[in-house]
């Protein structure tokens, strides 16, 4: 979800993750930061999103998965999530994905990582 910068808390830093050129539309990339791993998406409408990088079913990175519309499908076992909300959409995924706020500064993609 995009967030207004005025809502940011001082202890929630915005981290520069990539540029808008780094991700194709309807696709995702992996972003590692501070021993944590995330997935950053560009939706079919050009909006950017961020979730935890690992599937909640098994520790498989979603960056090898397939984005169709607003759904990411895990590369291993076909669990599906709506990456806008993190909602688990198809078994075996049953726990939701954590999502993070994303905002753009020009071409820079910034993620709010607590």
């Amino acid at each position: 979800m995009t967030a207004d910068a005025s809502h940011r808390k001082p202890d929630m830093p915005w981290i520069e993750a990539c540029t808008t050129q780094d991700i194709d539309e309807e696709d995702l990339i992996r972003f590692d930061h501070d021993a944590r791993t995330f997935a950053i998406y560009q939706g079919p409408d050009g909006t950017f999103f961020c979730t935890d990088g690992l599937c909640t079913h098994e520790d498989v990175h979603l960056s090898d998965g397939l984005v169709m519309g607003y759904v990411i499908e895990c590369p291993k076992h076909n669990g599906q999530f709506d990456y806008r909300t993190g909602e688990a959409k198809r078994s075996p995924a049953c726990r939701n994905l954590q999502t993070y706020n994303v905002r753009l500064e020009g071409e820079r993609v910034l993620v709010e990582i607590p």
Binding site: V60, D64, G65, L66, P75, K76
Partner: peptide, 11 residues
């Protein structure tokens, strides 16, 4: 290697 083929298999 690993999951490099997952996306193409899904497609």
């Amino acid at each position: 290697r690993d999951n490099e083929l997952a996306r193409d298999i899904k497609l």
